[in-house]
């Protein structure tokens, strides 16, 4: 057994080493794959705050992923066609600047998470799973019929957006941006889990009544966690759209929500680096199992079952054992 912290370090170093190797060996597609894994990991880290810390099983996180994606798509679309996003009541112009886009993506997905959270947190357990799933579907259907932004066809952005001082079209540069964000968010996540808020949230998940008796509102704690979670997943959505230079309603689909959840459980629920390991393994499976058979989803399904049965703590749990505090 390796200590979990050592494992976390190893995972991140490896995740950094592979694209660097690929850069020197002229394998740009490997860098793209690694970037995809990093962005998926970020989305899952977001969900993990609601799911792992708050115990909120949300099957609708694709809503935030998609909102982030569309925030990028809409802003960049207006910037590339030189049209304003809206003129009344005040003028908003499109933009190609990543930091601005990220901010918009985070704010809009935060607002959406707040609204969805207020409604959904009136329920619990299975109701919560289903109501978040349904909200995700609502966004999906809306985006399909939203003709102004391409409907089902989605929006194509011709050139990747700009980041001050970096050429984002070079694969390794864009990878570096995403990887840095992931590390920052992981750091934040670690701090959050040990902060008074994180401890209270953890308690609210395990024993809401006790939290209430000390004067904290467990619902409010969960709502804050849900919003933070939505904001991070929204940011991941904006990055994902930029990776593909394309957004479409599939980002809102319920399969997407399911996949984000799979990353977490595959890697290890409530583990700091669980989502990262899960996303990396999933992208690798997608890549290599796909080569074996047209019907690779069968193998993926079987593998997931094995994880549920025999590796309850996910892959991280399998390697590092059950030593983590909040369990």
């Amino acid at each position: 057994m390796i200590r979990e912290r050592t494992l976390n370090g190893l995972v991140l170093v490896l995740l950094l080493a592979v694209p660097l190797w690929a850069m020197f060996n002229d394998q740009p597609f490997t860098i793209t794959l690694a970037t995809r894994a990093v962005i998926f990991a970020l989305a899952a880290v977001g969900l993990n705050i609601a799911l792992g810390l708050g115990g909120l099983v949300s099957l609708g996180h694709a809503a935030f992923f998609g909102i982030g994606g569309y925030a990028m798509g809409i802003l960049a679309h207006h910037a590339q066609t030189y049209t304003p996003v809206m003129e009344l009541p005040f003028l908003i112009e499109g933009t190609k600047s990543m930091p601005v886009i990220w901010l918009v993506a985070m704010v809009t997905s935060g607002i959406a998470a707040f609204l969805i959270g207020i409604l959904s947190l009136r329920t619990a357990g299975v109701y919560f799973i289903m109501i978040t799933l349904a909200f995700g579907q609502m966004f999906y259907f809306f985006s399909i019929s939203w003709a102004a932004y391409g409907g089902e066809d989605g929006l194509l952005i011709y050139v990747r957006n700009d980041f001050p001082g970096l050429n984002t079209l070079v694969p390794i540069n864009f990878f570096a941006i995403c990887f840095t964000i992931l590390c920052l968010v992981l750091l934040l996540n670690g701090l959050l889990a040990r902060s008074p808020f994180g401890l209270a949230l953890n308690a609210a998940r395990q024993a809401p009544q006790r939290v209430q008796t000390v004067g904290l509102d467990p619902q409010r704690l969960k709502l804050v966690a849900f919003v933070i979670s939505g904001v991070i997943t929204g940011l991941a959505g904006a990055l994902f759209a930029d990776l593909n230079r394309f957004v479409s309603p599939t980002m809102f689909s319920w399969q997407m929500s399911g996949e984000i959840m799979i990353f977490i459980i595959l890697g290890g629920n409530a583990r700091l680096c669980g989502p990262v390991v899960g996303a990396v393994v999933f992208v690798m499976l997608e890549h290599f199992l796909g080569g074996l058979s047209e019907y690779w989803h069968i193998y993926l399904g079987a593998l997931l079952l094995l994880v549920v049965f025999f590796a309850r703590g996910g892959l991280v749990g399998l390697i590092a054992g059950r030593e983590v505090a909040h369990d």
């Binding site: 597609f29 793209t32 066809d153 394309f246 599939t250 980002m251």
Partner: peptide, 28 residues
């Protein structure tokens, strides 16, 4: 899936270095 298609196109162009591309069924 559009995002998968985009990624495969990147792979075809960057890694496989294909000369000609074809095959897509759906307009989106």
């Amino acid at each position: 899936k559009p995002d998968v298609a985009v990624q495969l196109a990147d792979k075809m162009i960057q890694s496989e270095k294909v000369d000609v591309m074809t095959g897509i069924i759906w307009s989106n």
